[in-house]
């Protein structure tokens, strides 16, 4: 069935891309959770799924990014197990907060003040801090936040750098793909 108008076609394109991005995010999230890390610090992860959130933020804006962060957490914990459990609340609050923060930094990125690396590093830092804050809130132990946050902050730099660089090149590739397959292409 052919979409009748260009607007409908654009909408369809957007929905498809969003669905694909969500799929990628959920799969990365699930696989990453299953990977053992050679890290002495619990709770530290590369945050590869964050790449997809950044990509959605860059390509489609804040609303899509938030949608992906939320859906990724829900579906991810549905697959891993422990929906509405401890890990789920950490994941969803951290995902949403880091998404909002990254959306804010992205405004500066669009003006050419910073690059995606900053967006990603600040997002990773916000993610880690929120996660730790939530964790210490749930177990009602502020010592956890106090003693642990510098370590997570420092570790967010390498992971943020990695995801930022990945997101940069991924954005490049994806933009070219979208233009190729966008409205009017292939007709």
């Amino acid at each position: 069935m052919q979409p009748t108008t260009l607007k409908m076609r654009n909408r369809l394109n957007y929905l498809t891309y969003l669905a694909v991005l969500i799929t990628f995010a959920v799969v990365i999230h699930t696989v990453e959770a299953a990977l053992p890390l050679p890290m002495p610090v619990p709770g530290v992860r590369l945050g590869l799924a964050n790449v997809i959130t950044i990509l959605a933020l860059v390509l489609f804006g804040l609303r899509s990014g938030l949608l992906i962060a939320v859906v990724r957490s829900i579906l991810g914990s549905l697959f891993i197990g422990g929906l509405f459990g401890f890990g789920f609340w950490l994941s969803i609050t951290a995902g949403v907060t880091s998404c909002l923060v990254m959306g804010l930094v992205l405004v500066f990125q669009k003006r050419g003040l910073v690059s995606l690396v900053s967006v990603s590093v600040i997002g990773a830092a916000a993610h880690n801090l929120t996660q730790l804050g939530m964790a210490s809130l749930i177990i009602a132990n502020p010592d956890l936040l106090r003693g642990y946050y510098p370590l997570l902050l420092l570790l967010s730099i390498p992971t943020g750098l990695f995801t930022g660089i990945t997101a940069h090149y991924l954005e490049d590739v994806t933009r070219r793909m979208i233009i190729k397959s966008g409205p009017g292409a292939g007709q």
Binding site: S118, S156, L161
Partner: peptide
Amino acid sequence: LKIKKTDYIVITAI
């Protein structure tokens, strides 16, 4: 990827 001066400032700040 061009890493800007402000990026270094952000990373250093963290």
